[in-house]
Design a protein around this nucleic acid. Structure first.
Lengths: 152, 152
DNA sequence: TATTGTTATACTCTATAACTATA
DNA sequence: TATAGTTATAGAGTATAACAATA
């Protein structure tokens, strides 16, 4: 517990990566019938979650990716008729991403697919363990920026 | 705080994916000076961990990827002179992957890089929380087939 | 016929850089 | 000049399918 901290930390990274590889695979599989990819699904959920249509930059920030990546994802979703690019009257540089009716209709299936994938992955954990994991992940995800300030 | 297990489960998936995206990015950065990618680093560690040179199929299984993916990774590591493909005298179909001296020398730097990346990511967590997270991930990653007793 | 590894190919996801058009 | 989004390009990671060599 004392000298093995480093090794254990490294193992955490490995386990995390392995787990995510699985999650990604399962999610992809569950999403295949819908025709869209996990990243597109995530963008769709993010866009739906906002009370008003988000800009491309906002989406990039919330998805924690570079703006260019958003362009591709929106392209894909637009091809599937699930989102629509609408110009912002107040600032002609910005593009806002709106869900179409089809996109909104797909949301429920999307959520079901994601839940199924997560459920499949998290099967070994009981409710209390899931709550624990949720708390830990929230603590990790909470501080995106420079970090280092909250821990001595 | 509602008891909506489904939604919470979905959020877990999201947080996991977001976290791993970050981990991957950080790891890549820390590994850049060494010239190899995270996936190659993982293969190298896996190969080093085995008492005797593993077959391509073994590596695929342990890395949880398809055999074809291993070919590419070993190609890359071989180009960097870190592993060597050696024929198996007992079965001329199999190829075994051996670490070279350079590969073995790189291991320590690799581990340091991985630790640094994980450390950066896990900064918000204290020792006890890391232990908890490790336990949870171990429970999740444990192979369904192997008789690992983690039942609640 | 089954297993081992490979060639060939393609797709997802993401990144950087340079460009356009606004502001 | 700074901002928003795009085109162009690249690379990591992984997958399927067809194939050759071997068992």
């Amino acid at each position: 517990m004392t000298t093995e901290t480093g090794e254990a930390t490294g193992n955490l990274a490995d386990q995390l990566l392995r787990l995510t590889r699985r999650l990604h695979r399962t999610q992809k599989e569950h999403l295949r019938p819908l025709g869209i990819t996990p990243a597109m699904a995530r963008l769709l959920r993010t866009a739906a979650h906002s009370p008003e249509p988000l800009r491309m930059v906002d989406l990039a920030q919330r998805l924690d990716v570079v703006p260019r990546a958003v362009t591709s994802l929106v392209d894909g979703l637009e091809a599937y008729g699930m989102v629509r690019r609408v110009p912002d009257p107040a600032n002609r540089r910005v593009v806002r991403v709106e869900l179409t009716d089809d996109g909104r209709a797909a949301l429920e299936q999307l959520r079901a697919a994601r839940r199924a994938a997560a459920e499949e992955l998290l099967a070994p954990l009981g409710p209390e363990q899931r709550r624990q994991l949720g708390d830990l992940l929230t603590a990790l995800v909470a501080d995106p920026g420079s970090g280092r300030a909250n821990c001595a």
